[in-house]
Design a protein around this nucleic acid. Structure first.
Lengths: 114, 114
DNA sequence: TTAATATATAACGATTTACTTATATACGTA
DNA sequence: TACGTATATAAGTAAATCGTTATATATTAA
């Protein structure tokens, strides 16, 4: 049962953000594990600025949060967001993407930000 | 509880479609009432081709269906779609948009396709 | 058959998007 | 302090998006 609704224009803007495969996969991964930028760079085989820009959009919308830990910035899902219940429900429909992190670990690339 | 998941690329494409306020509102309305193109034209104060193009995208993705009734084409949510559970869950987070149809009715414009 | 109405398609333009490369900033360490 | 690593920002570009107007198609009714 849904506790409260999200204004439809706001909802559309969140869904637009999630309507990109890269960002949607990021958010799905963050649902289980906090990640740093460098991990996403490896996973998506995309330039660091491209990853950074996706994360900024998600952060600006309040979907994710960042926490600096030394020279790394760790991203996590913002569970306090008004949109969190919507995002969570969407994620429930997606298969786990954790194999991407497993692959990274097998390459020994996960350790980079721990 | 979710019965089955949607491949993440497909999910992203559906969310992208829903990530437009006009289309999201259309789908929310269709969740309660079948509608024809001319009703949407009145509601969104947008050209008929613009409405037609939004509906085509939704139809191509399998989210909605069309049924001709005389000279009108009635659109409805496609409950048989693999994406229907996802769409339905998203819609649950939105406030009803039925006031748009009420307004239409008050203007006497709803009768046009009945 | 002709006209009117409802809808779809085509062609086009302004804006947005999602990358890229180059550069700036922040932190840790020698 | 100076250097290396992690991340962010700036600037530019190709492609996608969402609207428009003009036109085509389909149905109904005179």
């Amino acid at each position: 049962m849904i506790e409260s609704t999200v204004e439809i224009g706001k909802a559309a803007s969140i869904l637009k953000l999630l309507g990109d495969k890269t960002r949607l996969t990021m958010v799905k991964l963050l649902n289980n594990h906090d990640c740093c930028v460098c991990e996403f760079v490896e996973i998506f085989k995309m330039s660091q600025p491209a990853i950074s820009q996706h994360l900024r959009k998600l952060k600006d919308a309040g979907v994710v949060r960042e926490n600096r830990r030394g020279q790394w910035i760790i991203y996590s899902l913002n569970q306090e967001s008004d949109y969190y219940p919507l995002v969570q429900n969407v994620l429930d429909h997606l298969p786990s993407q954790d194999y991407l992190l497993t692959e990274l670990e097998e390459q020994g690339l996960r350790i980079s930000c721990e």
